[in-house]
């Protein structure tokens, strides 16, 4: 049951995302761009930090 609930809620989220993309993309292209852009900016900054840790670990091993 838990599995189906997860799949269902994922479907709801995806459905909402598509709806948002269609509506926002049509009426509020810049608002939509902000949503996508901000998510991307946050994720890239986070990825940079993770990369920093990886680089550091690799650097320590090389020494």
């Amino acid at each position: 049951m838990g599995k189906y609930a997860k799949i269902f809620s994922l479907a709801v989220v995806l459905g909402l995302a598509i709806f948002l993309a269609v509506v926002a993309g049509d009426y509020g292209p810049w608002y939509f761009a902000w949503l996508v852009g901000t998510t991307m900016i946050v994720l890239i900054a986070a990825a940079g930090a993770v990369l920093f840790d990886t680089q550091e670990e690799r650097g320590e091993r090389e020494i």
Partner: peptide
């Protein structure tokens, strides 16, 4: 780490 995160955060933001 903060420098790295802020730099990446900023480079995309400043272009936007």
């Amino acid at each position: 780490r903060s420098f790295r995160m802020a730099a990446l955060f900023g480079v995309i933001s400043s272009m936007a």
